[in-house]
Each structure stands twice: as structure tokens, then as C-alpha cells.
């Protein structure tokens, strides 16, 4: 048993340890030079900045979707509930070409938007759109079960004690959902930062403007600049670790707040 377990962790650990080992072959100075080069900085900025913006949109729209799915009954509700998972299930390359076709200047949505002077495909806006697409299930699926399990009596109590509906939502419901909302935000952010397939088609991939960090890793690899690729990857990996840690903490916080029934 112990043997299988150590074998298991080796399967995941060895490749990742290899990545860190490789990065230690660089002197701190080299490491810093790679990261502080304009192109790397811009790629990291594009990835992290747009991922955060997209995660925020997902937080708001995800909450709206959860509210509609949990609290209201409308025709097609079950179908829309199932559809939320499409970005999980649809291969990223397929999502990428589909979003590009949709938002290209002659696409179904791209054409009317272009008439308004908004260009989506092959600009940073396109990256933003793709990141929203892939992040939406994370917020919905983490918040939905919590809202479903929320004790209706708390809301009734607030309402009958004279709180307006708005006050009840802000002061009673929102705090109960907070850990789940933050977890959803973190998961959507983590996914969007590392996303590759659905973004590269619609991004335009212009260095310094619409080039995401994962793509820069791939480019550096194809140029055989392994050190550069490794350095960028290590930064992204460390951020992933931090996010996982934060999510675990959030989950523990959420569990400690569940009242004993």
C-alpha cells in the first residue's frame, strides 16, 4: 500500500520537481532577466490581468445564473442547468475555433459588434471573452450547492423582522455564500490564467499586446529556449500553488461556518 502511494506521488512529483530543478540551473540573475524582459512581463500581465477581469465577470454573472437556476422556475431551466457544464466538457481547441468564428468580423456576433466599432477577435478583448467562456462553470458549480442548502428559515427570520428583500440579500444571504463565491472566483481565475487552447485562436497572438503567458512558453520551447520557458512556467506554477492553498483554506473556512443542525 505504502509502495503504491509513493509510486503515485512520484508520477506527479517527478515531472514537477524536474521543472523546479531546471529552474535552479539558472542563476537568480538569469532568472530575473528572463522574467523582467518586456515580452515576458507583457505576457504575464495579459494573462493575469485579463484572467482576473474575466473571473470577476464570472463571479457576477455566475451569481445571477445560480440565482435564476436555484430560486426560480422557468421553461428550459433544466437544460440551461446542464448547459453550464459545456465549457468543462467541450475540448478547448473546439471552443477556441468556435469562439473565433463567432466573434470574427464576419461572424454572427462579430459582424454586429464590428458595426458598433467593437473589434473582439484578434484583440485582447477576444482573450477576455474566451476566458469568460471557460470560467463560468467554476463559479456556478461551487456556489449552486451552497445556495440550494441555505436554510430558508434564516431568510424568513430576516424578512419577518423587517429587513427589506435587498437588506436580506446583502446582509444575510451574501455572507453565507461568501466562501463559495471566493472559491469560485479563485478557480475561474486559476483556469483562465493557464488556459491555452480556447484563447490562442481568438487572441491574435501579437507579442506584447495579445500574447498570453502559456503561448510564450510554447514559443520559447519551439525556439529551444528552455530556460525562458522554464522560468515563465515556474512563476505560473507558484501562482497555481498559492491558489490551491487559498482554495483549501477557503473550504475549511466554509466548513467551520456551517451551523450545526
Amino acid at each position: 500500500m505504502g509502495l503504491t502511494l509513493s509510486w503515485l506521488s512520484i508520477i506527479i512529483l517527478i515531472p514537477l520537481a524536474g521543472l523546479f530543478l531546471k529552474s535552479f540551473e539558472l542563476s537568480p540573475e538569469q532568472f530575473w532577466n528572463i522574467l523582467s524582459s518586456r515580452r515576458t512581463l507583457n505576457a504575464l500581465r495579459v494573462s493575469f490581468g485579463l484572467a482576473f477581469a474575466a473571473a470577476c465577470v464570472n463571479l457576477v454573472m455566475g451569481s445571477v445564473i445560480v440565482w435564476a437556476l436555484v430560486r426560480y422556475r422557468f421553461p428550459g431551466r433544466r437544460i440551461f442547468d446542464a448547459i453550464v457544464d459545456v465549457p468543462f466538457a467541450l475540448p478547448t481547441a473546439v471552443a477556441g475555433v468556435a469562439l473565433t468564428a463567432l466573434f470574427a468580423e464576419k461572424g454572427w456576433l462579430g459582424a454586429p459588434l464590428a458595426a458598433l466599432g467593437i473589434k473582439v477577435a484578434f484583440t485582447p478583448v477576444g482573450i477576455f471573452v474566451a476566458m469568460i467562456f471557460i470560467g463560468i462553470p467554476f463559479v456556478v458549480r461551487t456556489v449552486q450547492p451552497v445556495l440550494q442548502d441555505l436554510d430558508p428559515e434564516i431568510e424568513e427570520a430576516a424578512g419577518s423582522l423587517g429587513a427589506s428583500r435587498w437588506q436580506t440579500i446583502i446582509r444575510v444571504i451574501l455572507p453565507s455564500l461568501a466562501p463559495a463565491l471566493l472559491t469560485g472566483l479563485a478557480l475561474a481565475f486559476a483556469r483562465a490564467v493557464g488556459e491555452y487552447g480556447s484563447v490562442i485562436f481568438i487572441a491574435g497572438n501579437l507579442p506584447n499586446v495579445s500574447e498570453i503567458a502559456p503561448l510564450l512558453i510554447v514559443i520559447r520551447l519551439s525556439e529551444f529556449r528552455y530556460a525562458d520557458a522554464t522560468a515563465i512556467a515556474v512563476v505560473m506554477l507558484v501562482v497555481s500553488f498559492v491558489i490551491i492553498f487559498a482554495v483549501n483554506r477557503l473550504q475549511r473556512w466554509a466548513q467551520s461556518r456551517i451551523p450545526v443542525r
Partner: peptide
Amino acid sequence: SVSPVISGLV
């Protein structure tokens, strides 16, 4: 939570 590109890179 790791970028698929990094999974390939390793």
C-alpha cells in the same frame, strides 16, 4: 490547476 502547457513542458 496547472496550465496544460506546463503539464506538457515538464
